[in-house]
């Protein structure tokens, strides 16, 4: 299997990563939400999700990143905006900047559910970290494309020249033969 940049890729790795991706995504979200009470958190969660994206890139090449159709700058902006919004929200209520609010629900069957506003802050961090790593990745993809384009152009030049030589020589001989 070969990527657009002409390097060989392992099908086994690609299939493994395909299977692994949902697990990694679920784990990253789990890490982020778990962080409030146990080791984890938005930064770690974001890094795991970013690692999943990078893995897909390594397994399937630039297509893996391009097919996501997400502009990293949007992720970066959204993450930062969410975190800042969570911070300023309490001010409207006369609270302090970044003051936590704790909401408790009692949905049926599950029992008590607790939601803390700082979890939203962590989600912002998570999204932002994914965005930043993706931005770096996109930089590499662009570099790959550039190399590929340059190679293609060189290839075209060479084949054009070769084609000219190939078609030119018989041309002259043919005309000579006709004469």
């Amino acid at each position: 299997m070969s990527g657009t940049d002409g390097t060989r890729r392992s099908m086994i790795l690609a299939e493994t990563v395909n299977g692994l991706t949902p697990v990694l995504l679920a784990f990253s979200i789990f890490l982020t939400f778990r962080g409030h009470n146990a080791p984890g958190g938005g930064f770690a969660g974001g890094l795991v999700m970013a690692a999943a994206v990078i893995l897909r890139y390594l397994a399937s090449g630039p297509e893996a990143v391009r097919s996501l159709r997400i502009d990293p700058i949007v992720l970066i902006g959204a993450g930062l905006a969410l975190a800042a919004l969570v911070g300023t929200w309490p001010l409207l209520d006369g609270g302090e900047f970044l003051e936590s609010s704790i909401w408790k629900f009692h949905p049926p069957l599950i029992g008590e559910m607790k939601l803390v506003s700082s979890s939203l802050f962590d989600i912002g961090v998570h999204v932002l970290v994914v965005g930043v790593v993706m931005a770096v990745l996109v930089a590499f993809v662009e570099a790959d494309d550039e190399v590929a384009r340059a190679n293609a152009a060189r290839e075209e030049l060479r084949s054009n020249a070769g084609h000219d030589d190939a078609s030119g020589d018989p041309g002259t001989t043919t005309s000579g033969g006709e004469r």
């Binding site: 984890g40 958190g41 975190a83 911070g87 803390v116 700082s118 802050f121």
Partner: peptide, 21 residues
Amino acid sequence: EAGGRNVVNVILVDFRGFDTL
């Protein structure tokens, strides 16, 4: 105050949240 048992995370997102921001 912050409704979390992982104090490291609570420091990051609440006590010192401004630093994190």
